[in-house]
């Protein structure tokens, strides 16, 4: 699987509400301005279609930072 910076790039590119440079590995995305449950769904959907990994709402809630999310996706990919 690609590194976390590629992962961040993809999220920033695909999600309108998130501009380039807004996310760092340590960003707590749920505390971002404009975060909503719809954005949560879009995260899940993006990960599903881009990485063929289905994460559920609970896993998303258990992640605080982008790094946590990346680690979940990476672990599921293996």
């Amino acid at each position: 699987m690609e590194d976390i910076f590629e992962f961040i790039k993809k999220i920033e590119f695909e999600i309108d509400e998130i501009d380039e440079g807004m996310l760092q590995p340590e960003t707590n995305y749920r505390e971002m301005e404009g975060w909503s449950s719809m954005l949560g769904l879009i995260f899940i959907a993006l990960i599903d279609t881009e990485y063929d990994v289905t994460i559920n709402g609970e896993e998303l809630i258990n992640c605080a930072t982008i790094q946590d999310l990346y680690d979940v996706v990476k672990a599921k990919k293996q």
């Binding site: 449950s37 769904l41 899940i44 599903d48 279609t49």
Partner: peptide
């Protein structure tokens, strides 16, 4: 189940 419906639509 909004997340499931969303995923269904997106796939």
């Amino acid at each position: 189940n909004s997340p499931q419906i969303f995923l269904f639509a997106l796939r």
